[in-house]
Design a protein around this nucleic acid. Structure first.
Lengths: 85, 85
DNA sequence: TAGTTAGTTAGGTAATCATCTAAATACAGT
DNA sequence: ACTGTATTTAGATGATTACCTAACTAACTA
């Protein structure tokens, strides 16, 4: 099972990033502004989420837009469901 | 949200403990025997799972039986579901 | 091409984590 | 009470993590 996904979800900041990206795509800067954490730290969190496959990035000129990708949540979802019954 | 539950699930050993407990209740010793990890380490993992509310323990004589408790998974399940749509 | 803005990479640090061995506690049987 | 079995607690250690500042890269604008 994708341990990367579980580990990515184990941090409250990263979960909140996902919550925000659910509403709309955001640039790294917009995400950093929302949290009181330095840009490099946010960049680090985004790398972890990207490695886990939970977000994708697309460069638009000067900006990098991040989007939510929930397909990798299916395995976790199924695992929890299986455990629950 | 219950960060403890997410963090408890972020370790493969702990997830496998839950998988095993899904089949039947087990003693700490039985769990430790299954993994090639020392008993104190398993005890530590069990404490984390217990603190998160994912398992319960019941003492029967000399043994302590651990059982799966999936009720605390509901929040995570709902959160993922919300994210997925 | 110089300056500005957006974002990452590099390097360092303090805190947390997973693991171990050794010692302690709890119970059962003789 | 003594011995053995089950499990936890204590204390230590190496690895990982989350964060920071400083420096770098890339792209836009004048």
């Amino acid at each position: 099972m994708s341990n990367d996904v579980f580990k990515a979800l184990a941090d409250p900041t990263r979960r909140e990033i996902l919550d925000r990206l659910k509403e709309k795509d955001l640039t790294a800067g917009e995400i950093a502004d929302y949290f009181s954490i330095s840009k490099p730290s946010i960049s680090h969190h985004l790398t972890i989420l990207k490695t886990a496959g939970l977000i994708t990035q697309e460069k638009k000129g000067q900006f990098i837009y991040y989007s939510l990708n929930t397909t990798v949540l299916q395995d976790i979802y199924s695992w929890i469901l299986k455990l629950k019954q």
